[in-house]
Amino acid sequence: MRVDLFDFDLPPESIALRPARPRDAARMLVVNSEAAFEDRQVRDLPSCLRAGDVLVFNDTRVIPAQLEGMRGEARVGATLHKRIDLRRWQAFVRNAKRLRQGDRVSFPAEVTAIAEQRLPDGSWVLAFEGDEPVELLLERAGRMPLPPYIAGKRDTDEADATDYQTMFAREKGAVAAPTAALHFTPELVDALAATGIAQETLTLHVGAGTFLPVKADDTAEHQMHAEFGRIDAATADRLNAARAAGGRLIAVGTTSLRLLESATGEDGIIRPFEGDTSIFITPGCRFRAIDGLMTNFHLPKSTLFMLVSALMGLERMQAVYRHAIQGGYRFYSYGDSSLLIP
């Protein structure tokens, strides 16, 4: 499909620079395939679902993956986006033209890395020196990697260390938050449980590639970035059992959806999964694992807007986004939510 079909005009003032407080006070647009839209709040979620449904969360934890350093006299910025092994990470590098294979880059707090290899997509493999776990080095030298549409408008501050982390965050490795789950609070989770709505977690380490623009003119020409994910056997069994009993699986965020669909066979059975996924979901896709999606509002011409258009239909999502923009919904990572039930 032509990428320009997924374009729309978004006023700059629609982009949220801070989250709603409390988190579950964010607005939520409820959409199904036919009925009129419902303007609700995230805290209304228990009344929008039914007993037996299962919300599937991503428990990845954002690491301070943004680094500012020096290669000699040249300033270099690095955003880690995918672990290769214990000491090596793939990174997008700012001012990369100043970098050569074998160069040592010095970051704050005596953290250093060797520029080991430039990859075909323009990113670099950075090999961190020393014996300390890289996660500890990043705690000393890195900062929270806010999305470019926020970081370009204000500085990262102390509030972002908690604001840009979900209450489910446990497994370190993401460089972007699974933002649909930012809206959840312990009080909301308790209310959902009291209504008979279950929750499960999986892990998909979101990479900085999620912010890369689609440069191709046709979706068939776009190369999706790879991200590491894991679903254990016990979780897969519970999800399959819930669905067999008539419950609906509602992915909380596009990351949960992409991993569930990657782990599900043509027979609709979710299987244990551990490895990379580069699944690219566009209109025409037949969903095998999920029955609904809770997600924020996405960028024009992004792979995520293509994904929600695949779930609900392009014309339906164009109407949804027109309603959201006209109604003052807040967009992107710190913005409002939508509940999509096809």
Score class of each variant (00 low, 15 high):
165 Q>P: 13
99 L>C: 12
50 R>Q: 15
145 P>T: 07
280 F>V: 05
51 A>K: 12
255 T>V: 06
223 Q>G: 00
294 M>A: 14
247 G>T: 07
328 G>I: 04
254 T>V: 04
172 K>A: 15
44 D>E: 09
33 S>M: 02
87 R>E: 08
253 G>E: 06
22 P>D: 04
135 E>H: 03
302 S>V: 13
331 F>R: 10
23 R>I: 11
235 T>V: 15
330 R>H: 06
174 A>L: 04
244 A>D: 11
149 Y>S: 04
38 E>Y: 00
195 T>Y: 02
39 D>T: 13
211 F>C: 02
157 D>P: 02
13 E>C: 05
110 E>Q: 14
15 I>C: 03
9 D>F: 05
207 G>F: 04
286 R>Q: 14
234 A>H: 05
172 K>H: 09
86 L>H: 12
88 R>M: 07
296 N>K: 13
148 P>Q: 08
174 A>Q: 11
169 A>V: 09
293 L>I: 13
131 D>Q: 14
286 R>K: 10
225 H>S: 04
245 A>H: 05
318 Q>A: 14
24 D>A: 10
164 Y>K: 02
273 F>T: 04
79 T>Y: 13
236 A>G: 00
16 A>F: 10
49 L>C: 13
218 D>S: 02
203 T>H: 11
190 D>G: 12
253 G>S: 08
170 R>N: 11
315 E>T: 14
257 L>N: 03
171 E>L: 02
285 C>N: 05
240 N>M: 06
167 M>W: 11
142 G>P: 08
219 T>R: 04
137 L>E: 08
224 M>C: 07
201 T>F: 00
27 R>G: 08
258 R>C: 02
125 V>K: 06
6 F>L: 10
246 G>H: 12
145 P>Y: 06
326 Q>H: 12
229 G>K: 00
130 G>P: 02
288 R>Q: 13
233 A>G: 04
41 Q>C: 12
288 R>F: 06
60 T>E: 09
224 M>E: 08
88 R>G: 06
29 L>K: 09
256 S>C: 01
81 H>L: 10
41 Q>A: 12
41 Q>I: 09
284 G>V: 10
170 R>W: 07
65 A>E: 07
149 Y>D: 03
291 D>C: 00
19 P>G: 09
318 Q>W: 05
54 V>F: 07
206 V>Q: 03
277 T>W: 03
275 G>H: 06
174 A>D: 11
323 H>Y: 14
121 D>N: 15
278 S>N: 15
225 H>Q: 08
320 V>C: 12
153 K>G: 06
138 L>G: 10
320 V>P: 07
256 S>L: 03
213 P>F: 00
132 E>C: 05
117 Q>E: 15
233 A>P: 06
105 V>P: 01
275 G>E: 10
184 F>M: 00
319 A>L: 09
308 V>C: 11
304 L>F: 13
241 A>M: 03
30 V>S: 05
